[in-house]
Simulated assay, not measured.
Amino acid sequence: MLSPVFLPHGSPYTIFEKSEFTAFLNRFGQENRPKAIVIFSAHFESEITTIAATDDVHDMEYDYYGFPSSYYQVQYPARGSTIVASMVEERLRQNNIPVQKKYRGLDHGVFPIMMHAYPEADIPIVPVSVNPFLPARQQIAIGEALQGLEQDGILVIGSGFLTHNFNEIDRNKEAQPRAWAVQFRDWIREKVLARDIEALSHYETLAPHAALGVPRAEHFVPLLIALGSGSPGREIDVLHDTIEHGSLSTLAFKF
């Protein structure tokens, strides 16, 4: 069974890095071989849940600035799947969740993960957008509509970051974790492992230092979507857990 997961996607630097984090992604890909992937990327935003449907090789979206030219020549030639896109659309519509199909290529919330987990680019990928302005409970409901896709060999991934505050990132990757980042990470980890939906639905007011950890929710809501898409009775596992650059949590879950 291909349990849904929440994965941090790293920065564009992740593309060429070899690190503890990229080694984790490599192991993850070796241990999980889906027929197709549905991925909610923090870098694909839309007011209405939008599915990028194609059977062709995906375009590349180099949605970052100021990097060396090699970062704009990276190719990840995975195909899409209109069949899987239609499965996602049908499930969302059945649950009264507004949805549309509109094509968009693979952004850096997608291809840095995929390049390390599935370097052969041989698994179809269906990107789906997030709306960071929806309440937390509605984010979870989007995931709940997709429960059971794993039975068809489809892996649901929420791609984001537990903490994502550029003003709090230390340039030194090995910088000591800041106290607020540890406290926020620990609170979220505890509530996720307990599947405390009520607390997580109000994380903005209940979690310590939530405003520092999540100044804008686009990188956090893929966690809630992935949580919702998991089977309610199954134990949740932590897949990876470090804090880099002083405040950037790489906490990853399997649901």
Score class of each variant (00 low, 15 high):
Ile113Met: 00
Leu155Gly: 03
Leu106Trp: 02
Asn165Pro: 10
Met114Ser: 03
Ile97Pro: 07
Arg185Lys: 14
Arg185Trp: 11
His209Asp: 12
Ile188Glu: 02
Ala85Asn: 02
Ala194His: 07
Met115Ile: 15
Ile97Met: 10
Ala217Gln: 09
Pro77Cys: 07
His202Trp: 08
Gln100Pro: 00
Arg185Phe: 06
Gly153Ser: 09
Glu168Arg: 15
Ile197Thr: 11
Asn96Met: 14
Arg137Tyr: 05
Val214Lys: 07
Gln75Cys: 00
Leu134Ser: 00
Arg185Met: 08
Gly153Tyr: 12
Ser86His: 05
Asp170Ile: 09
Gln176Asp: 13
Gln75Arg: 13
Asp170Glu: 13
Asp186Met: 11
Val214Trp: 00
Ala199His: 14
Leu106Asp: 07
Asp152Tyr: 08
Gly160Cys: 11
Val99Met: 12
Tyr103His: 04
Ala136Pro: 02
Glu150Gly: 08
Glu174Gln: 11
Arg93Glu: 08
Tyr118Ser: 08
Asn172Ile: 13
Ala78Cys: 15
Ala136Leu: 02
Asn95Tyr: 00
Thr82Ile: 14
Val74Phe: 12
Pro119Met: 02
Asn95Trp: 02
Leu106His: 00
Phe133Asp: 13
Gln176Glu: 14
Lys101Gly: 07
Val130Ser: 09
Asp186Gly: 05
Val128Ser: 05
Gln75Lys: 12
Met115Glu: 01
Val156Phe: 01
Pro77Asp: 07
Ala121Val: 07
Gly160Tyr: 10
Ala211His: 13
Val214Arg: 06
Asp122Gln: 05
Thr82Lys: 14
Phe184Val: 07
Ile113Glu: 00
Val214Gln: 01
His164Ser: 10
Asn131Met: 04
Met115Gln: 05
Leu149Ile: 02
Leu134Phe: 11
Phe111Cys: 03
Ala199Thr: 15
Val182Gly: 01
Asp122Lys: 11
Gly213Phe: 11
Glu144Leu: 08
Asp170Pro: 09
Arg93Thr: 03
Gly158Thr: 10
Gly153Ile: 03
Trp187Cys: 01
Leu200Gly: 12
Ala211Phe: 13
Glu198Arg: 12
Val192Tyr: 03
Leu134Thr: 03
Glu204Arg: 12
Glu204Gly: 03
Phe161Ala: 05
Glu190Tyr: 03
Arg79Val: 14
His209Val: 09
Val182Arg: 04
Pro98Met: 06
Asp152Arg: 13
Leu206Asp: 12
Met114Cys: 10
Val99Trp: 01
Asp107Glu: 07
Pro119Val: 01
Pro119Leu: 00
Glu174Leu: 11
Asn95Ala: 07
Leu92Tyr: 15
Pro177Gln: 04
Glu174Asn: 12
Pro124Asn: 04
Val182Gln: 03
Val192Leu: 06
Gln147Glu: 12
Tyr203Pro: 06
Ala117Tyr: 05
Glu204Asn: 01
Leu92Ile: 12
Pro98His: 05
Gln183Lys: 08
Thr82Tyr: 04
Ala179Tyr: 11
Pro112Met: 08
Lys191Ser: 06
Gln151Ile: 06
Arg79Lys: 15
Asp152His: 13
Ile157Phe: 11
Ile113Pro: 01
Asp152Trp: 11
Val128Gly: 05
Val192Ile: 15
Pro135Val: 00
Leu206Trp: 08
Pro112Cys: 07
